[in-house]
Structure formats: C-alpha cells, structure tokens
Amino acid sequence: MLEIKDLYVSIYGTEVLKGINLTIPDGETHILFGPNGSGKTSLLMTLMGYPQYKITQGEIKYNGVLLNPLAINERAALGIGVFFQRPPIIKGMKLKDVLTEIMKKSGVDINIEKGAEALKLNGLIGRDINSGFSGGEIKRSELMQLFAQNPHFVMLDEPESGVDLENMVMLGGKIRMLLGRGIKKEERKKSALIITHTGYVLDYVDADAGYTLLNGKIQCKHDAMLLFKHIQKHGFTECELCRET
C-alpha cells in the first residue's frame, strides 16, 4: 500500500506539489488526470525519488516503510517502478545490456529474445537504448524493462502518448498483464498510478479510481471513467461531479 500524507515538493525553488494526500491500496489501479504543468509528472518523480524534487514537508510510505530518505534504487528494490515518457539515450549501452543488469537485481528470468519477439522489439535489443527508437518502440522498451524488473507498484507516465491505435491494442494488453488486471479483483496484488491525457489506457486496465490534479493539489477523486468523460466535456476548471456528491 502506498500512502502519501500532506506532501509538499519544490523543484529548483519552485513549489510544484502543495499538500498531496493519496492512498493506493494493493491491487488497485488509480488514474491521475490534470492539465500540463499541474504537477502530475512531478508527483511520479518524487515518489520514485528523483533528487531534483525536494520534499519540503510530508511523508511517503510504501508498505509501511518511509520512502523520504531512500535513494531511487532502494525504492526500486522495494518494488516500485516507473514507465517513463521520455527516457534518456545511453550511448553504447544496448537494450539487452540494460535488461540483463535489471534482471541481475530483480531475480526475474526472462528469455530476452523471446520477450523481445512478444513485444515486437526484435531489431532493437542490440541497439543503444532509446537511440532512434520511435514513440511506440520507447513504450515497448519501457514495458519490457518493467517486466524484467517486476515491480509491485508501477507508475506510468502517459503510456499511450505517441502510439498509433493499432499498437495501442498490443500495448494496452501488455500493460494489463504487467499490472495483473487479468486476475480476479480480490486476488490482485499489484497496484499502479497512471497519468493519461487520451484516456485510451482506461479501456485496458479497468481502473479503481481517478483524480484530477490542479496547481499541485488533488481536487477530487471519482470513478476514473466517469471523471474522464466529465473532463472531456467540461475541461478541468469546474467539477460538477464534486457538486453532485
């Protein structure tokens, strides 16, 4: 279970998160909506432990462990993982080298060739990671790395951006698999927090809840699909769902 209490975060002196409270129980997938610059990615990076994001107040706990003082890799070792939107190129380091290093730590044993085939990454495993990868290839490479890491709480930053509809079906199916959404609700263990603009991913993960983030604060929590439809109609400015309830 992930618990965030009264979290304030600054980046380079600018406050980007202003009192976040959020709980994600095991087995649940929650969705984060919000306009550009509202602090969605900042929240993910803070949870992962990126050092530019300075926590000025509040605490983050995962399975009862206080994350605030932990380094990124220590958080990953606790079972937290991120699906990045714009991962860096590493000159000379091949995708398969990265997968090998990840599996050394996670103990997961995936046949890299077969896994690459399933994700249509055959031609890319011998290439410098993320170098010259298309939008869809970056997503599939992120996904494969997460399968190799097997985190129990996954944060996905716009997993469908830049992906064409045809590939979305495959990607959506694999994300569903990664998050263990295929199994019965009461037996689900893995949890997730997903940022989405297009909402496509909602068709694959039957989310348990959705939030809007505005100006560094969580405005409301509702059923994810209901909230998404409402945002499509009315934008982020006023939430009539809140008024109704």
Binding site: A71, I72, A76
Partner: peptide, 30 residues
C-alpha cells in the same frame, strides 16, 4: 550523464553499478 544514472537506478541498479555499466557501454566493442 546524471539522467542516465538515475534511469538505471530506477530499475533497481545501485549508483556505482549504474556508472560502471554506462562506462562499460561507452567503451563499445560494436
């Protein structure tokens, strides 16, 4: 590059090992 190190760390690889892996990749036999 710090971004590269943090990226590998986010997958569970400790900092020193991430740096080694990046340098070793940089010395690219390919």
């Amino acid at each position: 590059d710090e971004e590269q190190i943090l990226y590998l760390m986010s997958r569970g690889i400790p900092k020193n090992e991430a740096v080694s892996a990046i340098v070793s990749g940089f010395m690219d036999v390919k």
